[in-house]
């Protein structure tokens, strides 16, 4: 039954209907969680013992940085599934993720820069964490450019999938950069083996924002994938029926 569900989901027609019903829920969840996260983060959470109120940019910076890595893994994973099983929907999900991931990477870099100026005393340094995150942005941009450069969608999907899979090697480098080398960027706070070294009153809004960003990604990637599916399937019966019914 579970297998059956995935088989059905992978059919463009079923996906279109299913994702259409899912979208309003994702949007509602995203708005509610963002409002709650911002309220608890900006109003309820106490100031930091060292950084005062400036640390609050973390509630945007950290989820964006997490998303930049998460989306890359999803993109490469979907690309690999597309390569192996030649599932069209996986290719669509993979390329639809690229621009969302690029946006989150850009956001992480910009908010980090704004945070760095008052705290570290500099907008930018070429330490391992910041440089590897910048490379991630270039990887995303390269994948988008490569996809746009090839007219045949199937060939484009294969080429971008290979580039995305090669780039996966950067993901552990970004994550462990602060442990392998000495950097200006501090070490991990939440994702370390012992208890997170962040007070619960600050951890809750951080996690709320992280889930909110995840829902936002799901929402946007589904919207983009729906467009792409319709465009690719424009000559099939179900799309014609859909257009006529509206």
């Amino acid at each position: 039954m579970f297998n059956n569900f995935f088989h059905k989901l992978a059919s463009p027609k079923y996906f279109y209907g299913f994702s259409g019903r899912l979208l309003p829920w994702l949007a509602t969840g995203f708005i509610l969680l963002t409002l709650a996260g911002l309220y608890y983060g900006l109003v309820k959470a106490p100031p930091d013992y060292q950084q005062g109120d400036s640390y609050r940019i973390m509630f945007v910076h950290v989820p964006s940085a997490w998303m930049s890595l998460f989306i890359y893994v999803v993109m490469a994973g979907a690309g690999a599934i597309g390569l192996v099983w030649r599932i069209k929907l996986a290719e669509v999900i993979s390329i639809s993720s690229a621009s969302v991931g690029a946006s989150f990477t850009f956001l992480a870099l910009v908010t980090g820069s704004i945070w760095g100026k008052p705290m570290w005393g500099t907008w930018w340094v070429w330490d391992a964490r910041l440089t590897s995150e910048l490379i991630l942005l270039f990887l995303y941009l390269g994948i988008i450019a490569l996809h746009n450069a090839i007219d045949d969608k199937r060939i484009a999907a294969r080429a971008t999938a290979i580039l995305a899979i090669v780039g996966v090697v950067n993901i552990p480098i970004i994550h462990y950069s602060v442990e392998w080398w000495n950097t200006l960027h501090q070490g991990p706070t939440v994702t370390k083996f012992d208890a997170p070294s962040i007070h619960l009153s600050m951890l809750i809004p951080l996690l709320l924002m992280a889930v909110a960003f995840k829902l936002y990604y799901l929402m946007v990637v589904l919207m983009r994938a729906r467009c792409e599916v319709i465009e690719r399937e424009r000559n099939t019966g179900w799309v014609k029926q859909l257009v006529e019914s509206q």
């Binding site: 100031p47 930091d48 013992y49 973390m58 340094v125 706070t189």
Partner: peptide, 12 residues
């Protein structure tokens, strides 16, 4: 001179 801050966040 750049300041490093640690990974700990807590109220004063």
């Amino acid at each position: 001179v750049l300041a490093k801050h640690d990974e700990n966040y807590m109220p004063p």
